[in-house]
Amino acid sequence: MNNDELYQKLKEKKFLLAGPCAIESEALVMQVAEEVKKISEALDITYIFKSSFDKANRTSLSSFRGPGLEEGLRILEKVKKEFELPIVTDIHESYQAAPVAEVADMLQIPAFLCRQTDLLVAAAKTDKIVNIKKAQFLDGKDMFYPAQKVKEAGNDKIILTERGTLLGLGRLVVDFTQIVDMKEFGYPVCMDVTHSTQRPGGGATSGGNPHYAPYIAKAAAAVGVDGFFFEVHPDPSCALSDGSNMVRLDGFKNILRDL
């Protein structure tokens, strides 16, 4: 399936972006990819595997970031080939777009970077699907402008992702009218469920309330979201990145089935 065909499928049918936050090890990535693929096939959901080769926006300099570009892409390519899954991963700098596009089917723009023109243009020029996550400080209606940068750079295969809005200091809330507003642009809209449960700041790592995840997902479904983003881990308490807001792999099927 080429990128145009994949994008058309995402526009027609509910889709799922899911995997561990960061590539902690090849074994972990393969375990999650295999299990979530089985769940997705059983529930007839279009599944794109997600994990990050580098988490460049960690709170602390000493926080785990991932294996880096070269090793991370090797592992993601193994997932792609062994499980025949499309891949999405995030890029933080424009030079990463071209090499990542050799493996990934979708390039993800982190929320904090959604206004970075050079990054958006570099992602657009790969002709891959570009998933732009809405900044925590940005109104959904203003996501027209990041999307327009990608479109004017020659790529209209765009997804917009809601991931919560800052309410004061250290608290995210989800305004579901943002999904309604972004859908008016004509692109598929995704709900980043697990990051929306995050409690940013407050120490060397961000906190979170993952027990809210099923409720946020159901509310997003009620307003017509096109896809869902979940970070999933066999044991979030031992995760090296975003453990406080990831959902457990062994309970993930029930969450999706309820949707």
Rank of each mutant, 00 (worst) to 15 (best):
Q96S: 11
A97H: 10
A98G: 09
P99R: 09
P99D: 04
V100L: 11
A101F: 14
E102M: 15
V103D: 01
A104E: 09
A104Y: 04
A104S: 11
D105F: 13
M106V: 15
M106R: 07
M106D: 00
M106A: 06
L107N: 08
L107K: 11
L107P: 06
Q108N: 03
Q108S: 11
I109E: 00
I109S: 03
I109R: 07
I109D: 04
P110C: 07
A111M: 01
A111K: 04
F112V: 10
L113N: 05
L113Q: 03
C114E: 03
C114I: 07
C114T: 06
R115F: 07
T117H: 10
T117M: 07
T117F: 12
T117A: 08
L119H: 03
L119D: 05
L120H: 10
V121I: 15
V121T: 02
A122F: 14
A124Q: 00
K125H: 08
K125N: 11
T126S: 08
T126D: 05
D127T: 14
K128E: 01
K128R: 15
I129K: 00
N131A: 11
N131L: 12
N131G: 10
N131W: 12
I132C: 04
K134H: 00
K134M: 12
A135L: 11
A135G: 15
A135V: 02
A135N: 14
L138M: 15
D139H: 15
D139K: 13
D142M: 15
M143W: 02
F144N: 03
F144D: 08
Y145N: 13
Y145D: 05
Y145Q: 14
A147P: 03
Q148H: 13
K149Y: 04
K151G: 06
E152S: 06
A153I: 04
A153R: 07
A153N: 08
A153V: 09
A153Y: 03
G154S: 09
G154L: 12
N155K: 04
D156E: 15
K157I: 01
I158P: 08
I159N: 00
I159K: 09
T161W: 08
T161C: 15
E162P: 10
R163W: 00
R163D: 01
